[in-house]
Design a binder for these strands. Structure first.
Lengths: 351, 351
DNA sequence: TTGAAAGCGCTAACAT
DNA sequence: ATGTTAGCGCTTTCAA
């Protein structure tokens, strides 16, 4: 595709009959220029529609005014919200963002990071990094050259910059809420394998203990892969099978909204009324939790804030001479909607 | 934040005891270098972990190997899918992507474009551009310097590169399907204002005409803003009001899945069974159409392909010397799921 | 096969 | 107030 050549500072200088430094001074407005020359140069700039090359500027300034984001999956609504938060805060501060998708693959993630490094981005945000890369020390070398912030993901004892959600408190808030509604037979739905599910399961057990409610292991349900659209179907069919039998909890806690919607769909098929007969609570507060009927009570993770905080942290690191490794833990918030109500029956009483 | 300086080609040259040109030849492997020097240089490159600066390369090559994407809203699931398609195809071809959000605002959209131009991206993809900018000629000048592809949006008689969906055929397919199921009382739900709604409404009218079904204007429902999460609620409450009265279509065609889910929720509240009593058909095939109960029958727009095609078109434009303005129209596909069935009652017969 | 040098578009220190 | 010039890190002629 044949394209016109961009106008350069030299084109402007010639046309305005001044030197390139004068043009530079005018467009940057950082050194005195007589108002007459200034005006003349500005006219030419407008006339030629001259836009300074950020590439050339970056070469000199040794910065690109760009951040790189790496997500394990663009279409996962959770990550999408985080990306929005990052993009918003970045663009307000005149930073552009590169978006790359690691597809949840550690090797691809490393490739993305290297690409961003060679593009000399001013900072990198990795959302839900692969545990493998977090533990291998891969990021140690990278971090010497470019600021990195991790959003969620494995972080136990790691010395990096983190923005995390307080999933523990979020989980116990949800559970305490259910218990305050009179529920004791609370089923726990989790996915196959993730740091986050393990944390929640531990909290589940300890909250139950604290209330002297015996933990029934049959009430801990694993629905496999937890972050795809299939999650809903998997959770739904597993819960359908369970609820068809004499498995009759009065409430269901789900590790994320996808699973909660799955449980909800299973109840609908079985004509079990939510929340009248069973209360369901989700986690994350992704948009589908608002679209279900009834609307899902859930725990908000404030993904937008997660993203905004990550971008702000990067911005801060760029400003300060020495920045201590920081770990920010964000509060979650219980969103009471329509899928939970006071228990009407006790224990295994048939529906 | 204090960061180590990146190693430059000069560091490598010194350490290897050769000139920078030799190092360049080695890393680019484009000119003869004796195998001994080559090996030595390669060792140093590895040792210093040298990565050539893409900024410097871009300055010389006058290309950045980056594309820019502009979306009206990152979290809109429809756009997210398109972005995924673009990112995938771009990264396979070694292009990175800048993501920017215009928030559906024409002025912000222009700002994003200008930023991308000054970053000297090799191509720009604008998803659902503002009609205002399409008609004002704003893009005429831009296009002289950088290849642009538009995905959907206003395109009537415009001489730009487009990737579009065949919404007309998609709409008539959906309608014909409903009619083949015996439906005649088909309600049409649309949003406030968009080229796409208008097109669909026209098709609706002509399909009805073709089947000699009188068009009842009360059956054309406008639910306002059509692309936010509120869309579901708006559509739901409007349909709730309507369906509570003697408004009794046997089928509902919705301009997008959000509205369809809204209609579905209204039916649930009114204990109207879908599809037994009313058939509902959506449009787009975004993920929530799979999560509802029953699953939504809808028209797939193949957003992934939309994005992939846009990126491929850009890639093509970059290769060819002169590229004719192209308009690619993608086929839609009727996805038959569980929200439509053969009509059981005729006309206004009470449910 | 290798090195020296020009130059991509711009900024900033140094002259004047 | 304005011009001249040295580079930012790299590629690519041109010489040797």
């Amino acid at each position: 595709m044949k394209k016109k050549d961009r106008k350069t500072i030299l084109d402007v200088a010639k046309e305005a009959g001044v030197s390139i430094s004068t043009v530079s001074r005018v467009i940057n407005n950082n050194y005195p220029v007589s108002s007459s020359t200034k005006e003349r140069v500005e006219r030419v700039v407008k006339k030629l529609d001259f836009k300074p090359s950020m590439v050339a500027r970056s070469l000199i300034a040794r910065k690109t005014d760009a951040f790189g984001i790496i997500v394990p999956g663009i279409t996962n609504m959770f990550f999408t919200m985080v990306v929005q938060g990052i993009e918003r805060t970045s663009s307000i501060n005149d930073y552009s963002v590169f978006l790359s998708d690691s597809k949840g693959d550690g090797a691809k993630e490393r490739e993305c990071v290297k690409n961003l490094v060679s593009r000399e981005v001013d900072g990198i945000i990795v959302i839900d990094p692969s545990t493998e890369n977090m533990l291998s020390g891969f990021y140690d070398e990278i971090e010497e050259f470019v600021p990195i912030v991790f959003v969620n993901g494995y972080n136990d004892g790691l010395q990096y910059n983190f923005i995390l959600n307080d999933e523990k408190t979020g989980t116990s808030d949800a559970l305490e809420y259910l218990i305050s509604l009179g529920h004791k037979d609370i089923c726990f739905i989790r996915g196959y394998k993730s740091y986050s599910y393990d944390i929640k399961e531990n909290v589940y057990k300890s909250v139950m203990h604290a209330h002297k409610i015996p933990v029934n292991n049959d009430y801990i349900i694993n629905v496999g892969e937890g972050n795809s659209s299939e999650t809903v179907d998997n959770a739904s069919s597993i819960m359908y099978g369970l609820l068809s039998s004499d498995f009759k909890p009065t409430a269901i806690f789900s590790c994320n909204d996808l699973m909660a919607v799955g449980a909800l769909n299973a109840c609908k098929k079985l004509q079990i009324k939510v929340p009248e007969q069973i209360s369901i609570i989700g986690f994350d507060n992704i948009i589908i939790s608002e679209l279900s009927e009834p609307k899902l009570t859930t725990v908000d993770q404030n993904m937008l804030l997660l993203g905004e905080s990550a971008a702000k942290m990067l911005l801060d690191m760029l400003k300060r001479e020495n920045y201590e490794k920081t770990r920010i833990v964000l509060k979650t918030r219980l969103i009471k909607r329509d899928s939970c109500s006071r228990v009407k029956r006790k224990g295994y009483t048939p529906l």
